[in-house]
């Protein structure tokens, strides 16, 4: 188990954003996304403002743009949907070049692209600057129900182990000359999945017993309590506070 130390979700660094306590960053993310989603989509300038704010935070975090962009690829299926929206939406149509597009669809596509991209960008920034176990501590600090915190903690802890197990099964299949090419090969893959379930479940039982014998009472002790000073809260919340200002201005400007 020496290879691959499973920090691919996290971009190691020591920037001011990396050093902020995880729960402050999580609250900042939630508020920032709430401001973005709550902004009327006609206020184009507001979204430019959010983009500048987020890009500023990304620069301060000193995470390479290429890394962030690669992580943002998850948004792709919805970009496709957004591109289709002006064609399939109903309502009055406008002529854009040779195409006749739905006006409501264009606005919808704009809202989806701008809000979705800002949301993904902000979440990627949190994921890149916060170690997974710090995220769990943040959820614990923010009083998410204990069972969910515990399940999340074990999930992140054993993610690499189970993925490595799945990879070993793939290597075992391939070293026996198997490559899945069509539906005829599904039984083999499903057997892999079945075996993975049994192995995961049995590992869960073993881990549980091992932990009980070491005095586990249903809650993981943390070495130190997660604390944020007033200064750190202010730094973390700077982004959503300015964002909330932008959102409020957009609403006020939108009023007749």
């Amino acid at each position: 188990m020496g290879a691959g130390h499973g920090h691919h979700l996290h971009y190691h660094g020591h920037s001011p954003v990396h050093r902020l306590p995880a729960h402050a960053k999580l609250v900042a993310l939630l508020l920032f996304v709430a401001a973005v989603v709550g902004t009327p989509r006609q206020a184009l300038w507001a979204f430019a403002g959010y983009a500048v704010l987020l890009l500023g935070a990304m620069v301060i975090a000193r995470v390479p743009a290429a890394y962030l962009l690669r992580r943002m690829i998850v948004e792709l299926p919805f970009v496709v949907f957004a591109v289709l929206l002006p064609f399939i939406a109903v309502g009055p149509r406008v002529a854009v070049g040779p195409l006749s597009l739905s006006e409501a669809g264009l606005w919808g596509a704009w809202a989806l692209l701008s809000k979705g991209t800002l949301g993904v960008g902000a979440a990627v920034l949190l994921g890149a600057t916060t170690e997974p176990h710090e995220l769990v501590r943040a959820l614990d600090k923010l009083r998410l129900p204990q069972p969910l915190v515990q399940i999340a903690a074990f999930m992140l802890r054993y993610l690499e182990v189970i993925l490595a197990e799945l990879d070993r099964m793939r290597i075992a299949r391939e070293s026996r000359g198997f490559t899945a090419r069509s539906i005829r090969h599904w039984p083999v893959l499903a057997a892999t999945l079945g075996a993975l379930f049994i192995r995961s479940y049995e590992r869960g039982e073993r881990v549980h017993l091992a932990m009980l014998s070491r005095g586990y009472t249903g809650r993981m002790p943390f070495a130190a309590d997660l604390v944020a000073t007033r200064q750190q809260w202010l730094t973390a919340l700077a982004l959503p506070l300015v964002g909330a200002g932008v959102c409020a201005t957009a609403w006020a400007a939108g009023m007749p």
Binding site: Y158, V161, I162, A180, G204
Partner: peptide
């Protein structure tokens, strides 16, 4: 009982299961 480890491992299983690709052709 408070078998969070078990549920956590099942969560990983669901996550890993979604990564296994089944070729359709």
């Amino acid at each position: 009982d408070a078998a969070a480890p078990l549920a956590g491992l099942v969560a990983v299983f669901v996550f890993a299961g979604q990564l296994l690709n089944f070729p359709v052709g």
